[in-house]
Amino acid sequence: MAERRTVLVTGATGFIGRRLVPALVDEGHDVRAMTRRPESYDGPGKAVAGDVFDPGSLVDPLDGVDVAVYLVHSLDHPDFERKDAEAARTFAAAAAEAGVGQIVYLGGLGADGEDLSPHLRSRREVEELLGSTGVPVTALRAAIIVGAGGISWELTRQLVKNLPAMVVPRWVSTPTQPIAIDDVIRYLVGVTGRPEARGRVFEIGGPEQMTYLQMLQVAAEVTNGRRVPIAPVPVLTPRLSSYWLALVTDVDVTTGRNLIDSMGTEVTVTDHTIRDIVPGDPLPYDEAVRRALEEQ
């Protein structure tokens, strides 16, 4: 177990943050949950007001903080690359000024040097910008995170729930490595405040490398007790795919398009050194799906 630290969690009310804050509290850390609307926060830890686009608003939340967990993204914005870079620069400068000892960042899988999608390229840029002012960054890179409320999981869940059959783009044959939200939280908690994790990049994933097609089929079997007929076709462009997703799910077109652009890139774990810092076997995909459905 890591020493007791003062930890700031940005994005404390989001998909990851609302699970991470109580887990860090349970670990014995003093946790500040940063949100733009602290008056409406009803979770554990201490609610603090802060906006990653406003340097002045970050002074008080970061004062005396040992570890800052950065869980901010603007995927629902058309110009998310610019916004995410701006926010990362602002936060990195404020963290350095406050003397923060570690920034923990949840980014995206994908080999360096590949032709990354705008989404994955942005995640990598944010990772670099967070470390640009000298604060040691611990980056956890993940692919699809399976958990109730996560955008990628919601796409999967709603597709297999709403459609008796599917015509899907070619990207369904791309390999990826989904990971249960429980394991993401376990890894985030495990590296927080750990000196041996500072300044390092870790890849995290579940035990199986799967295609999106296989993920859809397993999710359909767990959800409905049967497989769904799925036919890949070559003509669905990312733009057409995003409109199709918006039609049959509640994910908006902009977010869907930004996610789909990444689904043609293979994102699998090639380095398992995270287990040296945080031991334990990750949950298999079908169990992650069951837990997500139970929580739903």
Results as ranks from 00 to 15, higher is better:
T6S: 14
V167P: 01
G225R: 05
G99V: 12
P38I: 04
R186C: 08
A92W: 11
D261P: 00
E294T: 13
I181W: 02
G150C: 07
P195K: 12
M34H: 02
T156R: 01
R157L: 07
V72F: 08
L106N: 14
Y41W: 13
H119N: 10
E287K: 09
P164Y: 06
H29M: 05
A95S: 12
S173M: 12
A246G: 14
T138M: 00
V278K: 09
E81M: 13
G205T: 01
L109P: 10
Y187M: 04
T254M: 05
L20H: 13
M210P: 02
F53W: 12
T35R: 11
V100M: 05
R124K: 15
G225D: 05
M34K: 00
G28N: 03
A143W: 02
A12D: 04
S132C: 09
G28K: 05
A246T: 09
V31F: 10
Q217C: 00
L283F: 04
T192V: 09
E127S: 14
V67G: 03
I274H: 09
D183H: 09
L71V: 11
T268R: 14
S57I: 04
V135K: 05
P178E: 01
L8S: 09
S122M: 09
T254C: 00
V278D: 08
L130C: 11
Q296Y: 08
M34P: 10
L140G: 07
D281L: 08
S57W: 02
G206H: 06
D252Q: 11
S152P: 03
E86Q: 14
G110R: 05
A219D: 04
P175W: 08
V67P: 07
L216M: 11
L120Q: 14
T254E: 13
A143L: 00
E39W: 06
Y243G: 12
G11N: 07
V251W: 11
H73P: 09
T268D: 12
G45F: 10
L116R: 15
V25C: 15
G131W: 05
A143E: 04
V218S: 00
G205D: 03
A139F: 06
A92N: 11
E287C: 00
I204V: 15
A94E: 03
Y41D: 04
T133Y: 08
A111R: 15
V146W: 03
L120I: 14
R170M: 07
L213W: 06
V9Y: 09
T254I: 14
R186I: 00
L109C: 01
F202M: 08
M34Y: 07
D112N: 07
T13I: 10
F80D: 06
A95W: 08
P232A: 10
S117L: 09
E128H: 15
Q209V: 15
V289F: 02
T270D: 07
